[in-house]
């Protein structure tokens, strides 16, 4: 088990290098002059040159990359907009996004797994069809539009819930539901298909032949196996939630990293954009690592052979 985890960590290193390199390159290979982009069209040539020198943009690319990584690690990477370190701006926003994402994943897992299990155990019944269609609707819903609709109904018309911002529990309900909708659908579909797969297995017949109740056969023998692939999906969905937060936070003016990313892109605050991209990617990669480990805990075949 220990070796298994160590190996996974070792495999992360090239990905981490790749991630920082990509974030760096994406914004440095842009056509045009990055210093000019930062300074804006109205700035004078002297101002642009000064900026170029100040941010080391006149140095060779490898040196710039080294400076970028150093800035990330030491937290010295400066925001262009706010005259403060990028990390100091990002981390509080990241916390807000994590609160939102965690609330969403709870909604999505509870609803999705329940719907998927019911769908599989009531195959071809109206429950199955309803769950299937609702899941596909959930997956197909444009987050931003769904958010606007719910906001129109619950905030503007009924005035039950606030239309934006962060603070009380009531503030998080709409964004969490909106953000979790697609993941609910995906988790439900995944759980359904892995559950159907498991219910066909011989060991399910064995369990029934022992005289176990249908309930125990499903909840103990089938679900435990069916959740193994679902766990992976939940990990991937966590990434989708971090990304979806870009849109949800914009709709509900939730002060998270997604909204920060968009405003920084629009303001051409490149260091913040880069740092935010790297932070989100890192988080996602580590969540997937955690999922791999959880996967091994759930599946003894991996636990004892890895």
């Amino acid at each position: 088990m220990g070796r298994f985890i160590l190996r996974r960590f070792a495999m992360l290193i090239p990905v981490l290098v790749g991630v920082s390199l990509t974030a760096f390159l994406i914004l440095h290979l842009a056509p045009g002059d990055p210093a000019r982009l930062m300074a804006g069209v109205e700035a004078s040539q002297e101002d642009v040159d000064m900026l170029r020198h100040k941010f080391g943009l006149d140095r060779p690319l490898p040196v710039q990359y080294a400076m970028f990584v150093k800035g990330l690690v030491t937290g010295e990477l400066m925001s262009l907009r706010f005259e403060s370190p990028a990390m100091e701006i990002i981390l509080p926003k990241l916390k807000n996004t994590l609160i939102l994402a965690c609330a969403s994943i709870v909604v999505a897992v509870v609803l999705g797994v329940t719907a998927g299990v019911l769908s599989a155990t009531h195959r071809k019944s109206w429950i199955d069809y309803a769950a299937t269609i609702l899941s596909l609707f959930g997956i197909s819903m444009p987050v931003f539009w769904w958010g606007l609709l719910l906001m129109l109904l619950f905030s503007v018309k009924l005035m039950w819930l606030p239309s934006g911002g962060m603070g009380t529990f009531r503030h998080i309900i709409l964004p969490a539901v909106v953000l979790g909708t697609a993941s609910t659908g995906i988790i439900a579909r995944m759980t359904r298909s892995s559950m159907l797969d498991v219910l066909r297995q011989d060991y399910i017949t064995t369990a029934a032949a022992k005289g176990l109740t249908r309930r125990l056969v499903v909840n103990r023998h089938a679900l435990r196996n069916a959740l193994i692939p679902t766990v992976t999906v939940v990990g991937l969905q966590f990434g989708q939630l971090l990304a979806g937060a870009v849109l949800t936070e914009t709709v509900f003016t939730w002060p998270g990293i997604g909204r920060l990313l968009v405003t920084s892109i629009l303001a051409r605050d490149l260091p913040v954009v880069q740092a935010a991209l790297v932070i989100i990617a890192l988080l996602f990669v580590f969540v997937n690592l955690a999922v791999d480990i959880l996967y091994a805990v759930l599946d003894p075949r991996i636990r004892y052979n890895g």
Binding site: T22, L27, L242, V246, I280, A281, F284
Partner: peptide, 23 residues
């Protein structure tokens, strides 16, 4: 490994970054 790096930017983020770069 290259695909892993691209996949490390979840969902819309990679597209967002590329558009941010290219305009």
């Amino acid at each position: 490994r290259v695909m892993d790096v691209l996949l490390a930017f979840p969902g819309i983020l990679l597209a967002l970054a590329i558009v941010a770069m290219l305009g």
